[in-house]
Design a protein around this nucleic acid. Structure first.
Length: 478
RNA sequence: UCCUCCUUAGCUCAGUUGGUUAGAGCAUCUGACUGUUAAUCAGAGGGUCGUUGGUUCAAGUCCAACAGGGGGAGCCA
């Protein structure tokens, strides 16, 4: 039996003086030939193992190196030293796995995030990344709890799809056809009838359309799974493979949709604060250090926890696209020609415009609604003005668009008209249109980028540090 | 994909108007010390200066191309 061990988190939280304990973990540092800082990932805190001088042989001591894994048996006692409440007075120490210090890349010092990204297989062993992934876990758990409490059904939508009509960007092709000797038709085009599915298929860019089908019977569903975009995006907020939460609700209009999205985001933040206090405090301190490196003008006004608490305590600002344009046109930034891109009704809001609205003007999350129909997807419900659709984007400080959603067009003729205008193949989408033929109801939904949410809560500025093994153009190591 | 900056020891970085043998802190190794907190002190080892080509008597330093990375932009979540 191996698992008579106690996790360090549990030992530090509820251990009692003199308690006999077995712990296992990885050595962070070994000081003074007697103090081992041991971490097992259950908490950011290390347990100090004290091996009294003279009790262990020199040859054995040399094997206790940063990164080595070991088992320690001993008694929990109040620590006479500063910096920790408890320590484990070792009776027995056993090396589980040696770690050559000449070759091990992690040192007990600060490493740059860029360097750690290159050793993503080992970066879990740092304080920063173990904290990020504990928070990420909590958020994932909270997502299920939030929807479960509200009677939503967790739906698994397909990862391989034949639809390329969602208008959400470039896709990854899924095929078993050979690269050499690809079967061709007489006109030279690839003969997909010989492919695995007998037709062109790709990795999903969204589970929304399938989600709508289920919502037309189960009323309220959500998906939470991986999503793929083959765009050549090289930014701190894009991944080729990311996770997305897409709730879809029957009998919801745009306002219901916004209310749910705001409640959802606040629930996730609340959950992390309640369950990951220590990790968030560590990440907040880390962020503060990072901010100090920046020039005064670029520093954020708030610390991480202040920011999260502020978001919790305040209503998201809700404005229409038209109002947003008016505010931008009247802004000092516009009048002083600070914007690189021009502002006028009909344009898609640029990053600089969104950032100005969120970070300079409102200084809190902003929900922008009712965008011009030209710049939005075919399935969004057309408003009576004939110009706009019932769309909503939630813009978060430092992240940008974190949620994109809409009330869906449930009126068959209106939907088909829009599909024709946007050259969406109506015939192939027969199954989608059937929901509008058979008992259509008003419904709405949105997509929340999970890694962007993780970024927002942890304060990590690059999305590649919010997922264990980031997939980006020219990068699929690990 | 575009703009911009960067690439020097295992890591983080200095390196002057181009000039002789390229430095520091941390890490590693050796020794000392022993209630330490990224332990401390002394010493040692460690470099094809991203790659290729060019300019020059002379290139880490100047120029070009390529590769990788950061920041910003587009596309979006």
């Amino acid at each position: 039996m191996f698992n008579q061990r106690i996790k360090i988190r549990q030992l530090l939280e509820s251990g009692t003086e003199g308690q006999e304990a077995v712990v296992m973990g990885w050595v962070r540092t070994f000081r003074n030939n007697q103090f081992i800082a041991l971490n097992d990932g259950s908490t950011n805190q290390n347990l100090q193992i004290v091996a009294e001088l003279g009790t262990l042989e020199d040859a054995f001591l040399k094997r206790i190196t940063t990164g080595a894994s070991l088992k320690a048996v001993g008694k929990l006692i109040p620590s006479p030293g500063k910096g920790q409440k408890w320590e484990l007075k070792a009776e027995k120490v056993e090396i589980l796995g040696d770690c050559d210090p000449e070759k091990y890349p992690l040192q007990p010092k600060k490493h740059s995030l860029e360097f750690l990204r290159e050793i993503a297989h080992l970066r879990f062993r740092t304080n920063t990344f173990s904290a990020v992934f504990r928070v990420r876990h909590s958020l994932a758990f909270a997502i299920h709890q939030f929807y479960h409490e509200r009677g939503f059904i967790y739906l698994h939508t397909p990862i391989i799809t034949a639809t390329d009509a969602e208008g959400a960007g470039e896709t990854f092709r899924v095929t078993t056809l050979p690269f050499d000797g690809t079967p061709r038709r007489d006109d030279g085009s690839v003969n997909f009838t010989e492919d695995f599915f007998g037709r062109p298929t790709n990795l999903t860019v969204s589970g929304q359309l399938e989600g709508e089908l289920a919502a037309m019977a189960l009323s309220e569903i959500y998906t939470f799974g991986p999503t793929f975009r083959a765009e050549n995006s090289n930014t701190a907020r894009h991944l080729a493979e990311f996770w997305m939460i897409e709730p879809e609700m029957a009998f919801y209009d745009l306002e219901d949709n916004m209310n749910l999205a705001e409640e959802f985001i606040k629930y996730l933040i609340r959950f992390a604060i309640d369950n990951n206090r220590e990790d968030l405090e560590f990440l907040a301190a880390r962020l503060e250090e990072e901010e100090k490196q920046k020039p005064q003008s670029e520093r954020s006004e708030w610390g991480l926890l202040e920011k999260l608490n502020f978001v919790l305590q305040n209503q998201f600002e809700r404005i229409t696209y038209t109002e947003a344009i008016d505010i931008l046109l009247n802004s000092p930034a516009y009048k002083k020609k600070k914007f690189k891109y021009d502002v006028k009704w009909g344009i898609d809001l640029q990053s600089e415009h969104e950032r100005w609205l969120v970070e300079k003007y409102f200084k809190k999350p902003v929900i922008v609604t009712n965008y011009p129909k030209q710049i939005k997807a075919f399935y969004m419900r057309q408003n009576d003005d004939g110009k706009t659709v019932a769309a909503m984007d939630i813009l978060a400080p430092g992240i940008g668009e974190i949620v994109g959603g809409s009330q869906r067009e449930e009126r068959l003729e209106k939907l088909k008209e829009r599909m024709r205008e946007m050259h969406i193949p109506i015939k192939e989408m027969w199954w989608y249109l059937d929901t509008r033929r058979f008992g259509a109801v008003p419904h709405a939904g949105f997509g929340l980028g999970f890694e962007r949410m993780v970024q927002f809560v942890t304060g990590m500025s690059n999305i590649r540090d919010a997922i264990a093994f980031p997939r980006t153009p020219k990068n699929a190591e690990f």
